[in-house]
Design a protein around this nucleic acid. Structure first.
Lengths: 143, 143
DNA sequence: AGTTAAATAATACCGATTATCATTTAAGAC
DNA sequence: GTCTTAAATGATAATCGGTATTATTTAACT
């Protein structure tokens, strides 16, 4: 929770530092993203906002999620099924393992990822800016 | 090209083996997927078909691309920008490196990928069925 | 050639996202 | 605290990729 507050402050400071206005809508959206432990979709975020901010427009949620993403403060997860979800806690690329049955997601710490990035740099002439790494399968409970 | 013909035959045999009818539309779609060296979208495939099969419906292209995908004969690539593209040559998961400027795609052979899959299996209780691995950056020509 | 279930063409529909635009408001100047 | 103004918002229309529907056609097997 202390972490979540810090993330929230970081997001707001990034907005302020880029001369974006600090609106109640932005505070509410940033708070949900910073505090959510899962990977909410835009609709999920919109749903959570409805009780405290019943007049908030869905378009505002889309606009601000995109804004925070473009500022590098939240990570967009393009899932194999085509849905987009967001991570406000770890805004840098990291691997996900998704259960195709129950939807559970875990985020393993893979030491070999460093080696692979090195191999890519060594074998190509690309400057790598980001990556996406998802495994799909069945979790222990579902198989 | 010999490879492409072999892939084409493999796809058609897979259809035949599962009692799907061999229609001129399926032959044409399979041919394009087997022979294309890039990563065409459904619209790309539809566009290429229009000259020889002007009456083909876009829905038929969608249906058959999905069918061949479900039979494991083509790979769907969910790109970071949200677009779906297809690979009829290498229907198994493999890494892609995408240039965000010119769109060039290369498919490196990463020896460390085996190690990483092992690490995932060892660190989780998941049965891994597939994966998705894309790097984004700028290629040598674009930077 | 005849039969029949599957496949197709045409198009309506759907859900996620984006664009438009009139109205409201945060932030800085006074 | 009020004023000003550009930015942000709410409401909603438009767009776009993909799916569903349905009448018609056809591949595969008698």
């Amino acid at each position: 929770m202390a972490d979540a507050n810090k993330r929230f402050e970081t997001i707001i400071e990034k907005l302020r530092g880029n001369y974006y206005k600090i609106t109640p809508q932005r505070l509410a959206i940033a708070e949900i993203l910073a505090k959510s432990t899962g990977h909410p979709s835009v609709e999920d975020i919109y749903g959570k906002l409805r009780k405290d901010h019943p007049s908030m427009s869905l378009a505002t949620v889309y606009r601000n999620v995109m804004l925070m993403k473009s500022l590098g403060e939240i990570l967009e997860l393009g899932f194999p099924d085509g849905s987009n979800r967001y991570d406000g806690n770890k805004p840098y690329p990291h691997p996900h393992i998704i259960c195709i049955q129950c939807g559970k997601i875990i985020e393993p710490n893979l030491t070999t990822l460093q080696d692979m990035t090195k191999e890519v740099i060594q074998k190509t002439d690309f400057t790598i800016l980001t990556h996406q790494l998802n495994f799909s399968g069945k979790c222990g409970d579902c198989k």
